[in-house]
Design a protein around this nucleic acid. Structure first.
Lengths: 203, 203, 203, 203
DNA sequence: AATGAATGAGCATTCATTCAT
DNA sequence: CATGAATGAATGCTCATTCAT
């Protein structure tokens, strides 16, 4: 049989990489960087132990690459708020809902793992500094200000409001992403009270 | 020369035990049961590796004993809300404040680790089932109902309200207890909006 | 290049397993389960420490698996007495000879270690109960009775005769299997006097 | 209170030493040198761990000292055969009985442990060379020869006869001294057949 | 590209031995 | 003399990583 041409090879490589990443993503997010075993990732990806190392030089590199991707995705998710329909507070409500259920949480969970676990590679720490909470705050600031002008959002210091909102949201995502049934997902509506203008709620 | 008398020995043993527990508490809460190395605990406690095993039979036993203690303490903290001054919402506010800063968080963090980590001893799992979120909900229910009657607390289903409050609080404690500066502690006042009756806030 | 095919892998695995078993057998029989260090077994087998654990989950499992095999072999050896040539007493003599020199002793030695050492896994204890001395006695009983009828074997209580014979044989095997030159192997002929009918010997 | 005088001190020291030796003897003979833990010996002796080291510099020294004593005792036991009543074969029978039940076995067991275990101190190995099987053979030789002249003992090569007798006896003692009920003590009468002149038995 | 056998460094735990009291 | 707290070296076992095929 004729050997595969370059393009086909490239495609196989890319598919495998994605397959591995998906498996690793799942395992890392669930177990954290130390409890996640390379053998577990290989098994989840349905490949051999050794093959992992054809695609990623090390566990650290694999983890780093995932965190990088998660940061991009989480930023995109965050930015997407501006494209959502409705008034500012409605946009935020939609964003919040999306994060509380499954869609957005895994990315944040991985980032949380990266932020709080031991044994995180140095490179990841540097990446995280760039994408600190401030980045997200800057991203949401115009939206919150707009909401305040519209009287929908409480008139507190907007940065503090955002910090509070993000911390609560992060916390919720973290405690809910461990497959642990004990905690309850609060409804997005309740969380909105944190930032909504009370007068608005009243009506 | 005569050996140390019983009282002195007892005192030494007690001191060492507490010293080890304190060190282990710190390490476990920060790192989780797997990442926490016995050598790390020993070093933190300023003792040798071997001595750990004079006082605790195993890593599991040490962890279990700490979780047990944390459960007792966290329950006590939660119960203490009834003894606090002021109206129901003021009591809850004080409780919230206490948990957000240093005082209460470590206990919750350890319990969170126990709930979500891999490699948790079977006995701990059993203990955790007894102290589920429901336990805390039951404890706070009368207080929330009283607050609702007084018009201070939002008129939602009280159990859902408490679940939301506890989840948010847990989340905050978790993300804040990793010695990570990136997240911000939301102010207790802001968190109170989750449960407060909006009309009351307004005034 | 394609990976090794199934058959080759299977062969490698089987060879390694046997290689490890042989090494472990030697070390366990000589040193007992506690003194036998996994590193010693690995070295004897000419492999790394870690590889041991690809083939056997633990020291206990390795030991158990060897004891199991030894019990099967020792039973087979014992049963084979019926297929040996000659009269009952000649059969027993041949069996005895086989056990005193190298062929059968190591199996018995391992079983002896299992019976008398500390730190023997629970499962091994259960196995040993099934294969107690009584099992062997039952196996030899018909042969001894036949010999008694033929006037070749002493007319004592046959079970006691067998017990005596087996104890002596076990003892000999044990003291001889430690690579210790100090003890002498008694000749089989001498041992036969324990059970032979004295009148027969005379002639 | 007046301090104890030298003699009293000396007596206490001696008593303690014997107390420790007795405990160690028991534990070593039962468990072998490696499985025997110093803490076990201390507990058996009813003293603290540390005190052991006031009386014996190390585990090795303690073991060595016991082996030395056991060698002296076993030699004495062996020699005592000449003082026993009866004909040569009766003397040997009495000796055999004494060794099979409790009285003599522990000494031999300890020596067997010393001969066959791992981790035996170099000094013990040297001692054992001096007291090899040959020593015992020399001791019993005159008795056996006398028995042969009297027609009570089989007319084989006397040294081989003794070697056989001693090996069997050692084996019996070894397999019986592990508190293991599975093996049976053969009766002394049966063992005597190994060496007795068959004609004598007949009558 | 793909496999899984092989390696070795790291961690929990045990235990002989020392030391302050 | 006597105690038991304290130490640290040794051992079973795990797992990231490499390598021959």
């Amino acid at each position: 049989m004729a050997p595969l041409n370059d393009e086909q090879l490239h495609q196989i490589r890319d598919e495998r990489r994605e397959q591995i990443k998906a498996a690793a993503f799942q395992v890392f997010a669930r177990k954290g960087i130390i409890s996640a075993k390379m053998s577990m990732i290989a098994e989840t990806a349905g490949i051999s132990n050794g093959l992992l190392y054809h695609y990623f030089k090390s566990k650290d590199e694999l983890f780093t690459s995932l965190v990088q991707e998660a940061m991009v995705e989480s930023e995109a998710t965050m930015r997407s708020v501006y494209a959502m329909p409705g008034t500012p507070i409605e946009k935020i409500r939609t964003l919040t809902e999306g994060m509380i259920d499954e869609s957005g949480a895994p990315y944040f969970m991985l980032i949380h793992q990266a932020r709080t676990s031991d044994g995180v590679p140095e490179k990841v720490k540097q990446l995280l500094e760039q994408y600190s909470m401030d980045t997200y705050m800057d991203m949401l600031l115009p939206l919150f200000q707009e909401g305040q002008h519209a009287g929908e959002i409480a008139a507190d210091d907007p940065r503090e409001l955002i910090a509070c909102y993000l911390s609560v949201l992060s916390g919720i995502m973290v405690i809910n992403s461990n497959g642990n049934d004990d905690y309850r997902h609060p409804k997005a509506d309740m969380l909105m009270r944190l930032i909504a203008n009370p007068e608005t709620i009243n009506k």
